[in-house]
Amino acid sequence: MPIKWILHWQPNAGTTVNSQILTEVSQCAEGINGVKEGRWKATISFYRAITREQANANEFPRDFLGISLSELPSKYYLVIRGQRLVLEAESSIQTIMEKLQSYRTRVALNFEGNQYQLGDFQLRVGKVAPLHSESLRGIVMEMEYIPISSWEKSHQIMGEFFDLWQEALSKRSLPGHFVHIEPNFAEFGLSDQYTAQHTAVQYASIMAQMIATAQSVQPVRN
């Protein structure tokens, strides 16, 4: 499977994301000769333990995510980030989770947008919005390099392409920038050969980052 980096938009201090930034980022992808090639989508659900007493909730993971990817509709990924655990399952696992009545999905976020082809690279730019809502919560970008599936070997070319992209985007003077977080895949038991489980771990990482950012800009309440 080709390797990809998943990046998220980090707004400058005091600013928030808006649809104008998303438009400019999409224009930038077209501006560097990206050929628009249809849509892509990923969905992330947050699972929470169902407990009889609220006090018991802390016994159970609070960073448990379910991830579906439009390129692999028959699969579903479950990630418990704190425990460095990623499970690959068939999509029917969602029904099993429902039947067990031990965890329920609290919130679901859609990541969706356009896909652009640039030679051997594929760029996917999209918005992050709650299910059944248009409100923009973030911007995400998938950067895929088709010829290589080794994380290590692709590092240099991905870094160079990312620099190029940053440079193109900087001309638009947007109030923020894309951030690349590199999870320690080995901790999750994943090898250097890229798989969809690597994608799931990256989504879980940017999710954690986006939540941390959102919480840090919220006013402190007494």
């Binding site: 418990i80 425990q83 499970l87 099993i96 039947k99």
Partner: peptide, 18 residues
């Protein structure tokens, strides 16, 4: 209901509190 899963399924369910 059945779902094929990766080999770390036991650790996963232990982590969930099973």
């Amino acid at each position: 209901n059945e779902s094929k899963v990766s080999k770390n399924a036991l650790r996963f369910f232990y982590s969930l509190g099973y």
